[in-house]
Design a protein around this nucleic acid. Sequence first.
DNA 1: TAGATTGTTAATCGATTAACAATC
DNA 2: TAGATTGTTAATCGATTAACAATC
Lengths: 194, 194
Amino acid sequence: METITSARLGEALEVDPSQVRKDFAAIGLMGMSRIGYDACEVCSTIRRVVGFDLSYPAALVGAGMLGSAILGYTEFERYGFRVVAAFDRDPFKVGRRIGGRTIMPSTELGGFVEKHHIPLAILTTPAEAAQELTDTLVAAGVAAIWNFTSVRLTVPPGVLVRNERFTAGLAEIAYHLSRPELSEAAHAPTSRMT
Amino acid sequence: METITSARLGEALEVDPSQVRKDFAAIGLMGMSRIGYDACEVCSTIRRVVGFDLSYPAALVGAGMLGSAILGYTEFERYGFRVVAAFDRDPFKVGRRIGGRTIMPSTELGGFVEKHHIPLAILTTPAEAAQELTDTLVAAGVAAIWNFTSVRLTVPPGVLVRNERFTAGLAEIAYHLSRPELSEAAHAPTSRMT
DNA sequence: TAGATTGTTAATCGATTAACAATC
DNA sequence: TAGATTGTTAATCGATTAACAATC
């Protein structure tokens, strides 16, 4: 049996070993004195607690470049979801196939979500369409929206919006770059001696 | 002059008004008694502190679907960056133009980054190429890597890696969906009464 | 003036870390 | 056994919140 200690996990995750042991205890993971934890059990328990061993159907809304990239991603199954349908308002895109799925017209979005009990919508539309489509999705009963647009969506309580904003990442990077003392031996913001 | 109070900001951001005032004081933003803060000053100061009013050149590495989507994104300028070049190892992609930029061969990546003092690389390659290209980028002197691959990159201290992993978002959503008590009136995980 | 809001200090709260008996 | 590691409690640390004098 492959085992792993809280010390090794803490080192890899850059957290205190006590933290690992406490969190593991909280989700029902028990270790063995002098041995550590069963690696397989750690994996499967975390996957179960997080919800990755389920499979929810999801609808992709907005089949632009980003939407197409997501449709081409094949690993969703490992993380609890499967994209079962894709929608776009552009008549020229409707009917085309991307990543094995045929694009359906946005007018059918609400009906589809309601009929198939889709709990998650992946929103990759232009900003101006985001709120209106969100309203449609909420009315049709989605429980969560994975929002890739730059719009701050308004939803009723109980509906989860997870924002995937690029700006947070850019802020961290820009902040880091504007403080040269943080990065040694790398390209300075403005100029550099070679 | 347009003004805003810490109370209003706190409400919008869902944080305590004291928190807003403390953070503002920390970055040198001073408010006015009975009035609040100058909205323009708030904006510009935050942008300056975060680093969004600078403009760093960035190189995109991996012109697949996600890379193409990023090349098509025109708002980077507002967040401190401009994508000045794109690279791919596929000879069929090299020479093509995406979002106004001509794809260059990956073999020229290191030389380009070094010559133009590029501080940031946006990594959107397949997993198997990620670490090798990272090594090239680090050797060429990048200060930060915006990592869209699923690989945990190894870099020397001083180089910032910002991971943009989908899995974190999926984990939050899957966790939320697997706890029906959190979402009222929405589609239950498995079945639903209509 | 009276009242609203800031800037800042003090109090609270929670999260992280340290310590250590129990275990194998 | 001796030694390594857990599970858990206690101590520390930091972050959040409350309070309030100062201000206009």
